[in-house]
Design a protein around this nucleic acid. Sequence first.
DNA 1: TGCACTGAGTGCAACGGTGCACTGGGTGCA
DNA 2: TGCACCCAGTGCACCGTTGCACTCAGTGCA
Lengths: 224, 224
Amino acid sequence: MPAIHPITDRRAALKERHRRAIVAAAAVLLEETGGLNFTIEDLAVRADVSRRTVFNHFASLGDVLAAVFDDVMAELVDCYTAQPPPEDAAQRSASVDEAFDELAAAVRATDLVPSMSYLTRSLGDKDQSPWVDGVLLRVLEDGGLRLAAAMRERRPGVDALEIDLLVNTVLHGVLVVHRHWYEATAAADDDASRAVWSSLVDRFLARLRSGYAREHDPGDPTSA
Amino acid sequence: MPAIHPITDRRAALKERHRRAIVAAAAVLLEETGGLNFTIEDLAVRADVSRRTVFNHFASLGDVLAAVFDDVMAELVDCYTAQPPPEDAAQRSASVDEAFDELAAAVRATDLVPSMSYLTRSLGDKDQSPWVDGVLLRVLEDGGLRLAAAMRERRPGVDALEIDLLVNTVLHGVLVVHRHWYEATAAADDDASRAVWSSLVDRFLARLRSGYAREHDPGDPTSA
DNA sequence: TGCACTGAGTGCAACGGTGCACTGGGTGCA
DNA sequence: TGCACCCAGTGCACCGTTGCACTCAGTGCA
């Protein structure tokens, strides 16, 4: 994911490269160890920086985790905003069910399987430190806010409350789906496992849709 | 080529890595541009460092060139010293013709073709700045001294004058061979080009040998 | 229960890299 | 022949990283 602002010199590039390396290494170690079963030293070695540098970039391990989870959210927001905009002004107004369709498409399109394993596992882990739960919930909230903002920009005619409810429901639903997927596949990364993921996502979205009948076309609800 | 002394911390490793990148980039640019047809900025970009950093490591472009050529010499010395030592004390003494054989084997074994193109071209180029000739000749002399020292260590019984003459003759001979090779193949890097190189090296070494008859076996001189 | 150890987090100074403005020599052109 | 430009090389200040010693909380064990 490119930096929010263009890197204008080598110093800034180096800084950003190291920050990204730390976040990426944390994601890998979460995956490999099944949680927070590594040290700051492990993280530094994997990121190819010094231990001090980790703390130059992040105030704490919690901040590193927040950045990891933030990337997951950013991925989803990117997939959502990457869709072609509605074709005319009339379509941009109202129609929360079409907003639902777009969000659903983004969830389907985003490769959430590898990066969300530890997120789900972290939330579901009874032995997890409470502070990690705090980090995760904050990241979900921040990500949800960004997703809602993107949706409001895209469909300004839709009620803000409807958008917030939609986003909140889908994000937490995706976590539930992911936990089921994880238990069914043991986080395998192969075609069969991805098929299970698609099936579960479709079931979840179909289930949600039945409460979101189309306002313009009450007949013929389609389930993929 | 590993550092002479082990790198003990990340700072030293970073410094050495950047120094090596600069030298490697210079070698590539010499090859690509056929000489000194690039700027310090080009070199810095290719080495992925800043222009200032080049001068942090080297006093001048001449010093960079010296380091590039020094790598070529080091390659040859490494091939020479990598050979198994003579099996007994008697063999370690005298026998300059066997010293010749060992040096010849090193010349054959060293992949000199890619890295010496610009060295030869530089020495043969009339338009070249005189200061480059100075750099090259100094590097040849330094490399020759190291090679001679390695030879004296390996065969302490051989006269020092004989060793110095041998090393000097072979090094300058290799440059002549390389110029002929370069003119015959336009520095192509393929099997046919390497076959030409091997043939020329063999001719040069066979020619030298006829002036170095074996002391222990006066009959049956072999030419490969 | 006291002690030793581990590891997160911190302060500080040094190192290596970098940005930038500058000088001066060399070159080409009107 | 003067001027403009290019580029090697330089000084200086700043940035980011790093090494290292430290504190403190948590943990395990005799």
